[in-house]
Protein backbone atom coordinates (compact mmCIF):
# COMPACT_ATOMS: atom_id res chain seq x y z
CA UNK A 1 0.00 0.00 0.00
CA UNK A 2 2.58 2.54 1.09
CA UNK A 3 5.61 0.82 -0.45
CA UNK A 4 6.32 3.84 -2.62
CA UNK A 5 6.34 6.13 0.40
CA UNK A 6 8.53 3.83 2.50
CA UNK A 7 12.13 4.90 1.98
CA UNK A 8 14.52 2.03 2.73
CA UNK A 9 17.87 3.61 1.89
CA UNK A 10 17.89 7.12 3.32
CA UNK A 11 21.10 8.20 1.60
CA UNK A 12 19.89 7.39 -1.91
CA UNK A 13 16.15 7.64 -1.19
CA UNK A 14 15.37 4.19 -2.58
CA UNK A 15 11.82 3.04 -1.81
CA UNK A 16 10.53 -0.35 -0.73
CA UNK A 17 8.59 -0.48 -3.99
CA UNK A 18 11.77 -0.09 -6.07
CA UNK A 19 13.44 -2.90 -4.12
CA UNK A 20 10.38 -5.16 -4.37
CA UNK A 21 10.06 -4.53 -8.12
CA UNK A 22 13.76 -5.21 -8.66
CA UNK A 23 13.61 -8.54 -6.83
CA UNK A 24 10.43 -9.57 -8.70
CA UNK A 25 11.93 -8.66 -12.05
CA UNK A 26 15.39 -10.15 -11.62
CA UNK A 27 14.90 -12.58 -8.67
CA UNK A 28 18.21 -11.30 -7.42
CA UNK A 29 20.38 -11.16 -4.29
CA UNK A 30 20.88 -8.19 -1.92
CA UNK A 31 24.12 -7.50 -3.71
CA UNK A 32 22.43 -7.27 -7.08
CA UNK A 33 19.65 -5.14 -5.60
CA UNK A 34 22.33 -2.76 -4.35
CA UNK A 35 24.00 -2.53 -7.75
CA UNK A 36 20.71 -2.07 -9.60
CA UNK A 37 19.02 0.42 -7.26
CA UNK A 38 21.94 2.05 -5.37
CA UNK A 39 20.23 1.07 -2.10
CA UNK A 40 23.00 0.70 0.49
CA UNK A 41 25.52 2.41 -1.76
CA UNK A 42 25.24 5.92 -0.37
CA UNK A 43 27.23 8.09 1.96
CA UNK A 44 26.83 5.91 5.07
CA UNK A 45 28.09 2.81 3.31
CA UNK A 46 24.86 0.94 3.91
CA UNK A 47 25.34 0.97 7.65
CA UNK A 48 21.75 2.03 8.29
CA UNK A 49 19.80 -0.05 5.77
CA UNK A 50 21.87 -3.16 5.05
CA UNK A 51 20.03 -5.36 7.55
CA UNK A 52 16.69 -4.20 6.23
CA UNK A 53 17.68 -4.92 2.61
CA UNK A 54 18.92 -8.40 3.58
CA UNK A 55 15.64 -9.08 5.41
CA UNK A 56 13.43 -7.91 2.53
CA UNK A 57 15.38 -9.78 -0.13
CA UNK A 58 15.59 -13.02 1.88
CA UNK A 59 11.85 -12.77 2.48
CA UNK A 60 10.93 -12.16 -1.17
CA UNK A 61 13.24 -14.95 -2.37
CA UNK A 62 11.97 -17.21 0.42
CA UNK A 63 15.52 -17.88 1.55
CA UNK A 64 17.25 -17.69 4.91
CA UNK A 65 20.08 -15.28 5.60
CA UNK A 66 23.41 -17.11 5.22
CA UNK A 67 26.69 -16.89 7.16
CA UNK A 68 28.36 -14.95 4.35
CA UNK A 69 27.83 -11.21 4.42
CA UNK A 70 25.91 -10.42 1.23
CA UNK A 71 26.45 -6.68 1.14
CA UNK A 72 30.21 -6.61 1.39
CA UNK A 73 32.13 -3.88 3.15
CA UNK A 74 34.89 -2.19 1.25
CA UNK A 75 37.45 0.28 2.46
CA UNK A 76 37.42 3.16 2.99
CA UNK A 77 34.66 2.43 5.51
CA UNK A 78 34.37 6.17 6.20
CA UNK A 79 34.44 8.95 3.62
CA UNK A 80 37.96 10.40 3.72
CA UNK A 81 40.23 12.86 1.97
CA UNK A 82 42.92 11.57 -0.34
CA UNK A 83 45.37 13.50 1.82
CA UNK A 84 44.45 11.59 4.97
CA UNK A 85 44.66 8.29 3.12
CA UNK A 86 48.22 9.14 2.19
CA UNK A 87 49.02 9.64 5.84
CA UNK A 88 48.80 13.42 5.72
CA UNK A 89 46.33 14.76 8.22
CA UNK A 90 43.45 16.79 6.81
CA UNK A 91 40.41 17.56 8.88
CA UNK A 92 37.94 16.90 6.09
CA UNK A 93 35.65 13.94 6.36
CA UNK A 94 34.55 14.09 2.76
CA UNK A 95 35.65 14.70 -0.77
Amino acid sequence: MSDEKTIICRCEEVSLKTINDTVYQYSCSSREVKLRTRAGMGYCGGRTCRHVIDTIVADLNQKVITDDIQLSYRPPVRPITFGALGGVYHENESC
Partner: peptide, 20 residues
Protein backbone atom coordinates in the same frame (compact mmCIF):
# COMPACT_ATOMS: atom_id res chain seq x y z
CA UNK B 1 19.03 10.06 13.04
CA UNK B 2 21.52 7.85 14.93
CA UNK B 3 23.40 10.57 16.88
CA UNK B 4 26.56 8.40 17.13
CA UNK B 5 28.17 8.78 13.73
CA UNK B 6 26.81 5.74 11.90
CA UNK B 7 24.21 7.20 9.54
CA UNK B 8 25.91 10.37 8.24
CA UNK B 9 22.49 12.06 7.98
CA UNK B 10 23.59 15.03 10.10
CA UNK B 11 26.56 16.05 8.00
CA UNK B 12 27.11 19.78 7.78
CA UNK B 13 29.76 22.08 6.37
CA UNK B 14 32.09 23.80 8.81
CA UNK B 15 34.04 26.78 7.54
CA UNK B 16 35.01 26.93 3.90
CA UNK B 17 34.98 23.30 2.84
CA UNK B 18 35.17 20.86 5.73
CA UNK B 19 32.24 18.41 5.93
CA UNK B 20 31.64 16.81 9.34
Amino acid sequence: YCNIGHCFECRVQVGERKVV
